Amino acid sequence: MKKDIDLVMKKNVGFDDNNSAQFIYSDLYQPLAWPDEYPCFIQIHSEWPVQDVPLHWHHGPELIYSRNQEIRFIVDTEKTVIHPGECILISSGAIHNVEPKKEIRNQDVMSLTFKGTYIEKIYPKLRQTKISFMSPDSTDEDRQELVEYCEKLYAILEQDTKDYFALNEVLFHILGLIFNRFVSKECNETQSTKHNHDKMSLVLQYVEEHYQEEITVSSIAMEFGYSREYFSRLFKRYADVSFKQYINGFRLMKASNELYTTDKRIADIAYDNGFADEKSFYASFKKKFNMTPLEYRKSKYEISDQ
């Protein structure tokens, strides 16, 4: 049954950590799980082949620090690039994607995804606050300090035994620095912009729940009360790709996860992730990863033997 979108839009957009579109995977491609020992999910990304992270959002703010990678982002329709030794700060609820360079085999990138429900208790205006690594209130010294704290985290994480007191000390220094020095004053959203942003958040949740089914541009536009043409333009503005390209990439991400973590037949993985047939899955997979699904599955054993 078609949901009453106007009624849905009068409520918050599923704005909690469990309903955030959580497309984050570790080197073993395990789903996001919030730790009890500290206030964020920490990852060191070194997986190969390197993957894009499709358009998504988190309740909590996010910091991504690249040691050796140029990474492109789209954050609430704005295109941004960070270079090795730089960070990006992503606001609570910001719709964003991540596009690392594919040819970097030994990528070394850290992401800190803070738990929104926890941070909101400390900073109640979290959802209304925009953060930026280039905030006008920040200085080059502030930015260098944030990078140095990221390196301190690396040093703690590389220890055989984790020092959770030291880890929390650094994480709360980072949080204090973010909300004292990196809050952007440019927060003037029009009602129309907020309406479209909230609807896009719902679209992404819908894809997360229905990607295994047949979804066309026309059907999802109708689902959310848009004309096909307007929805296509709106989605392209947020994602910089068409909806068809986006959902194909999303399905490939889910399928590649299953190739790494299960022994399911490749044909079953294709059907279970919304592809019409095995042939179309192979063609899409080869185009994106420059290898077949079978070669991709074998690559995990090559990495584990290194």
Rank of each mutant, 00 (worst) to 15 (best):
R143F: 03
F114T: 12
I90H: 09
L112N: 07
D163F: 02
K130Y: 09
K102R: 08
H197Y: 05
E120Y: 01
G60V: 05
A155P: 00
T77Y: 09
Y164F: 15
S92H: 05
I74F: 00
F182Q: 05
Q191C: 01
E70K: 14
F133I: 15
M134W: 12
V183C: 04
L167I: 07
Q144N: 11
L157V: 01
K152D: 10
E189L: 14
Q69A: 06
V109N: 08
T161K: 11
V81H: 03
D108Y: 15
S111C: 13
T77D: 06
I64V: 15
C87L: 12
L167T: 04
E86D: 11
E103Q: 13
K121M: 13
G176F: 06
E189Y: 14
Y65G: 10
L146A: 10
K101I: 03
K115S: 09
P61H: 03
N180M: 08
K102D: 02
D160S: 09
R72G: 11
G116W: 09
I156A: 01
S135I: 04
S184D: 15
K102E: 04
P84N: 02
S111E: 14
V147I: 15
M110T: 12
L157N: 13
R105H: 03
T77K: 15
T139V: 07
K152E: 12
P124R: 04
N168V: 04
P124V: 05
F172P: 00
I71F: 01
L167H: 02
E186P: 02
M110D: 00
S135R: 05
N168I: 04
S111V: 15
E99M: 06
F73T: 08
D76R: 01
E186T: 12
N180H: 08
T139D: 02
I119L: 13
G85T: 04
L89E: 07
R67K: 14
N188L: 11
E186H: 14
K130H: 13
K185Y: 04
L171N: 04
T161S: 11
E70A: 07
T117W: 00
L171M: 05
L146S: 08
N68P: 06
T113S: 14
N180Y: 01
E70V: 13
S92D: 09
V75K: 03
R181C: 14
N188Q: 12
D142L: 00
K102S: 07
F179S: 00
Q144E: 12
F73H: 13
L175W: 03
C187Q: 11
K194Q: 10
L177P: 00
K101F: 02
F133N: 06
I95D: 01
I178P: 02
R105D: 00
A94C: 13
T113H: 10
R72N: 13
Q69H: 08
T113A: 15
N168Y: 06
N168S: 09
E169F: 03
D160H: 07
N106G: 02
K102A: 09
F182T: 08
I82W: 02
V170S: 01
E70P: 00
M134A: 10
A155Q: 14
